[in-house]
Design a protein around this nucleic acid. Sequence first.
DNA 1: GTCTATATACAGATAGAC
DNA 2: GTCTATCTGTATATAGAC
Lengths: 181, 181
Amino acid sequence: MSRPPLAREKVLDAFEALLIAEGPRAATMDATARGAGVSKGGLLYHFASKEALEDGLLDRLGILVDDDVAAMESAPEGAVAYFLRSSVMANDPLDRAILAASRLAQGGSASAGEVLRSIRDRWAHALSPHTKNAAALDLVMLVGDGLYFNNALDGGSIPGPVPQGAALDALIALVEAVART
Amino acid sequence: MSRPPLAREKVLDAFEALLIAEGPRAATMDATARGAGVSKGGLLYHFASKEALEDGLLDRLGILVDDDVAAMESAPEGAVAYFLRSSVMANDPLDRAILAASRLAQGGSASAGEVLRSIRDRWAHALSPHTKNAAALDLVMLVGDGLYFNNALDGGSIPGPVPQGAALDALIALVEAVART
DNA sequence: GTCTATATACAGATAGAC
DNA sequence: GTCTATCTGTATATAGAC
């Protein structure tokens, strides 16, 4: 329950930023230590191995998802619209954590892949009562996946082919027309 | 125009298989040489660097996409249905090439990301006349992205959350109902 | 708790024999 | 055209001083 040491969080922030900005290959322990302003030895005090560092990031992601699912179920605009809108990169802590985890997953981490899969299941479970049928749920989930996928390819930096503004509104309206309960 | 040496193709096949099955980290030149049944020196005769090896894979992908776009435009079932159906992993050469390129992209290769982006553009351009409007095109493209994204996470091995069989038919019908011209 | 210094392993790439 | 042997850089991880 006691909040984790400040240095620990700074290390995770740096690791996350490196994964997002430069990919899994550049997110070494050395670079992470540099980015966090600690030495390699200092980092290894908090995270004894690369795996422990990755687990730390994934644990933090899990907590953020708890909040997101709760927010989705009580969103005034409806769960489907909330889900799709939050699937486009807003660069908030949750988006960054998911993006970083995606990089880990495609960089080779098996546990990152499992965590992402389980997050998808939790979203699907929460959206299920708000969609007409299985095909409608599939549609909503796949559009959400597509939005995240494109963000992940971009690295969240360059404006990609992801619809924004009015185009995003139109897309959401289209999906809701067929899918929503 | 002369077909490339057999050993060259065998090396690309092995590299592709490694990327798909074990991810970019495991797809080293050493492992690729082993998988292709040649020595490291033999591999380096055909591909002088890791970058050349990756370019070889991406070039082969480009050729497969040429054929796919042509097939999409003349598909009897219509371009939208063809596109969505071919977005679920069939483990054919094109699917494997795209999956391998996705692994490269998320592993850190900038050129793989560019190639994938340009492939997406070509598909969107071909689908444009077959969709009602911009939002409908976005919808179709994003569902396709979502299907590929889930395949990429799975590694194409374990049966993932991607709809198949009757569920896929229902999804396609749903998308066509809103999106098709 | 945080540091420096170092051990170990393996990646990509070169040189040159066959 | 394919091989073995080797160089160089760099990543993870350990040991131990402060």
